[in-house]
Design a protein around this nucleic acid. Structure first.
Length: 564
RNA sequence: GCGCCUGUAGCUCAGCAGGAUAGAGCAACGGCCUUCUAAGCCGUAGGCCCGGGGUUCGAAUCCCUGCAGGCGCGCCA
């Protein structure tokens, strides 16, 4: 049931605008006292040569009032509609409770594949807070698209190629050994990385050695390859621990090394299509006509580049997954890079170039300035998560000492706090990392929403009722119940909007809003000790809230503890 | 220099295919636990929506311009 549609249909019969225009014009007044929906009549004024107020009056007199609307008023140039709260409550509860697989779930994406490139970590480099955004945004989009019926392919495009391996091998052979790395791989590798850069400033030959070692990997030298695999496996092992904490899985780990032997045909194709031009010894695709700098495909020494690989990967993904859309969840620093790649693919004559989408997000920095792996200025993601879990454990010890699964709950809540705070704001905003903010568990936070969820759960448990239906939900008509129901009714549109805009924060915000509305309701009204019909309806409402919050949390990658 | 992005309360931000008095949270201050989880609720205080022009019946929202900050602009990814 969509009130907007109902209203637009009723209005269509009485005025010159069509349904689409009316849908767009219909809005929600800033204050409930003004009504629940409003039609501003200013635009009609010119065409009809009447004052907006007269038009509103005329519409009010001629419209056939839909059942769900209780009354219609004219205020200024607005035609204001007031919902019949009881009918609205019943209808809304009916839709929510009737949606077995989740309110807002759809199959509009049925039979369509979505490739999502996210997280995409570098091997042999630490997994730090700079990777948080891409990881959790990508995961959330994955879940949102699947919720709407799409089939997603999550791709962790590993940075598992390049001179950093040469550097690591040099450092490893000079200053470390396998035992040390096995023991504490991430830290030791990071220390080696830092030491290499320190020493390289004093000794220029180190960089040359690194290049030699990388060349050996490329040429398939046995020792080099063995070390390369050793570092890669170790990093993946470490990183999987973090993904496990976050509850994230990937369908593919095909990264840079995977595309090594697939680039030549693409280069040939570019040449064949006359897109490649020589420039200072390198080969580029000229994009001047599109007001972009040239896209570098081959270096003067014949080596491939980032763009070469991404173009190859896009083509491979199209051939392998025949995607409806391919998303790249990568920081906005690479805006130009992706704009160039997409344009080149378009120039190659592939119509699916329009289905490639760069989902850009803001940068993470620290209060003291930019993150720098080379200088060791990093905050490990795992440390952040553990710190959050630790803090949660303390709070549980203090507030819920008799909780059953303390460890499990601490994990859900601690990790949830970190993920939630990353998905609270529009993804384009920069983030200054702060433990204070990320470890705050009050207000617009993950724990707050989870707390609301477990509040509903414990209430339902206490009531001991398992199934609910919308019969009798007409009584949910006080201010708090009405406000809450209006928010819940907007949830499906919110999910669709989040999908369309690739913007998980819309769901995060909605989760907060619903939690706030429920807590307010919960404080103002009693439930279990009310008369039976009221009690039953309010429990049904709590049940519906619990389900929506659980789904909303799921969609942004959080778990929903039943107690906390 | 050129291009893209951001600028709203002390801080972090919603609101931005134009609509009625600009909203949250944090921090501050003051209240509410013998009753369904106080990780909660209520109240107080806090705003030339970066500046200046324009379009419009109406602009935080659209256009132009200036300022501030971030990012990018050929052989890293």
């Amino acid at each position: 049931m969509d009130v907007r549609v109902t209203l637009a249909e009723a209005l269509e019969k009485t005025c010159t605008l069509d349904k689409g225009e009316l849908m767009e014009s219909l809005e929600i007044p800033p204050d409930t006292g003004m009504g629940d929906y409003a039609l501003p009549c200013f635009k009609l004024s010119k065409a009809l040569r009447k004052s907006p107020q007269d038009i509103a009056k005329m519409l009010m007199e001629t419209i056939e009032k839909p059942d769900i609307i209780e009354s219609i008023q004219v205020q200024g140039g607005y035609l204001n509609f007031f919902l019949d709260r009881s009918k609205f409550a019943f209808e809304t509860m009916k839709s929510i409770l009737g949606a077995d697989s989740g309110y807002g779930r759809q199959d509009i994406g049925k039979g369509r594949n979505i490739c999502i490139d996210y997280s995409s970590i570098n091997i042999a480099k630490p997994f730090h807070i700079g990777h948080l955004s891409t990881t959790v945004i990508g995961n959330s989009l994955y879940r949102i698209y699947e919720f709407l019926g799409f089939n997603c392919i999550g791709i962790n495009h590993l940075g598992d190629w390049g001179t950093q391996f040469g550097k690591l091998i040099v450092a490893f052979k000079k200053w470390s050994n396998k035992e040390a790395i096995e023991k504490d791989s991430i830290n030791v590798m990071l220390q080696l990385y830092i030491k290499f850069h320190d020493e390289a400033e004093k000794d220029e030959s180190l960089d040359a050695q690194a290049r030699v070692w990388f060349k050996k990997i490329e040429d398939g030298d046995e020792e080099a390859l063995e070390l390369f695999k050793f570092f890669k496996e170790l990093t993946l092992r470490e990183v999987r621990k973090v993904y496990k904490l976050l509850g994230i899985e990937f369908d593919s780990y095909d990264g840079e090394s995977f595309y090594n032997d697939k680039m030549q045909p693409v280069i040939d194709e570019l040449r064949q299509k006359n897109l490649l031009t020589e420039s200072d010894g390198a080969y580029v695709v000229d994009l001047e006509a599109y007001k972009m700098p040239p896209c570098l495909i081959l270096k003067a020494d014949g080596a491939t580049l980032y763009a070469t690989r991404d173009i190859t990967a896009a083509k491979y993904r199209k051939e392998t997954y025949d995607f409806h859309k391919a998303l790249y969840v990568v920081a906005y620093q690479q805006n130009l890079h992706f704009a160039q790649c997409f344009k080149v693919i378009e120039l190659m004559g592939y119509p699916w170039a329009k289905d490639l989408e760069h989902v850009a997000f803001g940068m993470v920095s620290m209060e003291e300035g930019t993150l720098s792996t080379r200088k060791g200025k990093v905050v490990f993601l795992e440390d952040v998560l553990n710190k959050a879990i630790e803090k949660t454990t303390e709070i549980i010890k203090e507030k819920s000492p008799d909780l059953d699964d303390k460890e499990g709950v601490a994990k859900m809540v601690g990790v949830g706090a970190v993920v939630f705070s990353t998905l609270l704001n529009n993804r384009i905003k920069d983030i200054v990392f702060s433990y204070d903010r990320i470890l705050n568990f009050e207000g617009e936070t993950g724990p707050y929403v989870q707390y609301t969820h477990s509040r509903c759960c414990s209430l339902l448990k206490k009531a001991g009722i398992e199934d609910f239906d919308s019969d009798g939900c007409e009584v949910l008509n006080n201010d708090e119940e009405f406000a809450l129901l209006k928010l819940m009714a907007a949830f499906p549109d919110c999910v669709e909007d989040a999908c369309m805009k690739n913007e998980p924060s819309l769901i995060t915000r909605m989760a907060v809003n619903i939690a706030q509305a429920y807590n307010k309701f919960y404080f103002e009204h009693r439930i279990l000790d009310e008369a039976e019909n009221i009690c039953k309806a309010r429990l049904a409402l709590s049940f519906a809230v619990r389900n929506i919050i659980k789904d909303a949390l799921y969609l942004i990658g959080l778990e929903a503890p039943e107690r906390m």
